[in-house]
Simulated assay, not measured.
Amino acid sequence: MPALKYLVALAALVLLSVASVLVGVSDLSLSAVLAGESATARLVLVEVRIPRTLALVFAGAGMAVCGTIMQMLARNRFVEPSTAGTVESAGLGILTVLLLAPGLPVYMKMLVATAFALAGTSLFLLILTRIPLRSPLMVPLVGIMLGGIINAVTTFFAYRYDMLQSLGAWTTGDFSAVLRGRYELLWLSLALTALAYAAADRFTVIGMGEAFATNLGVDYGRVVALGLVIVSMVTASVVVTVGMVPFLGLIVPNLVAMAMGDRLRRSLPWIAISGAGLVLVCDMVGRLVIAPFEVPVGTVLGMLGSAFFLYLVLRRRSRAA
């Protein structure tokens, strides 16, 4: 039965991917492409639509899994890369590259953004160990404040050196510029998502606390370091390729956990599939709502994520009452 459910979910994801390939400003008939009747349609399919759809799937799955890992590391359901300073740190890394070495290849930009994201996330976790957390809501509040400070520093230097427009182009969360040759970095995100699944049981254990993990013989520090590296590299690869994709790691892991619990070996594939599906749906909504113009995926997810964050807060308060 579980295998059948996975097959159904994958089939639904494939159908969403096909719909994403066909939705756009210019009409694209799959039958015409397969019959070889239109060279232009085939060019659009190979150069634009398929790369964009793959980028949506990889980014959605990767960021959803990153949110899950962040929640295990911080032991808090309100945490994800955009509420922990991770995304903002990656943006600061990109600005640093644009200012100091704009000619670096894309993969080097990703490595610099990864280093900044790793530093920002580590700082967030360090701050959590230094302050009393009387309420779970303090954790995302600390992350949002840290992200706001980092974003303010980034904006200051971008304004000072007339780089606001360039920085905005890098961090909008827009898939419209994805072409063949400009999304391949996201294959790394897929590989790291698979690595996260391989270590799923360890992440589940450290989510129960350092003392519990140590008693079970798990190297807590090493697993935390692995989680930080996965989160930082996936976030950096997504930000460098398409920009910021906010709140995805908040929405999907919480919905899946409500239905399936916290055992990552069981729930992580569903989180990855659901994250990819949600990004595909948001992208199609953004392409259709004011066609022929587009609303960036980051904007659509930002609205959904804000509403869902408020729902989680109110739900927790009602349960506490």
Rank of each mutant, 00 (worst) to 15 (best):
K5T: 14
L7K: 04
A12H: 05
L13Q: 05
V14N: 11
L15I: 04
S17A: 15
L28F: 07
S31W: 14
G36W: 03
G36A: 12
A39E: 08
A41R: 11
A41V: 06
L43P: 00
T53C: 03
L54S: 01
L54A: 02
A59Q: 04
A59W: 08
A59F: 03
A61D: 02
T68C: 03
I69M: 05
N76A: 07
P81I: 05
G85P: 03
G93T: 10
V97M: 07
A101N: 04
A101Y: 04
G103Q: 13
V106Q: 15
Y107P: 09
M110F: 12
T114I: 12
A115G: 15
A117D: 10
T129N: 15
R130H: 13
I131K: 14
L133S: 07
L133Y: 04
L137G: 01
L137Q: 03
L141R: 08
G143K: 02
I144Q: 03
M145H: 05
L146W: 04
L146T: 10
G147S: 12
A158I: 04
Y159A: 15
Y161G: 11
Y161C: 14
Y161A: 15
Q165H: 11
L167F: 02
L167M: 15
A169I: 01
T172R: 10
L179E: 12
Y183S: 06
E184C: 07
L185V: 10
L185F: 07
L186I: 04
S189P: 01
S189M: 10
A191I: 01
L192V: 05
A194P: 00
A196W: 02
D201P: 02
D201K: 15
R202S: 15
T204C: 01
N215H: 14
L216S: 07
L216K: 08
D219I: 05
G227V: 09
V231K: 08
T235Q: 06
V238N: 11
V238I: 09
T241W: 08
F247G: 03
P253V: 09
N254I: 10
L255A: 15
L255H: 13
V256G: 09
A257H: 05
M258K: 13
A259D: 04
L264P: 03
S267G: 14
L268N: 03
S274P: 01
M284D: 08
M284S: 12
L288E: 04
P296I: 08
V300R: 00
M303R: 01
G305I: 07
F308P: 00
Y311K: 02
R315D: 00
R316F: 00
S318P: 00
S318A: 13
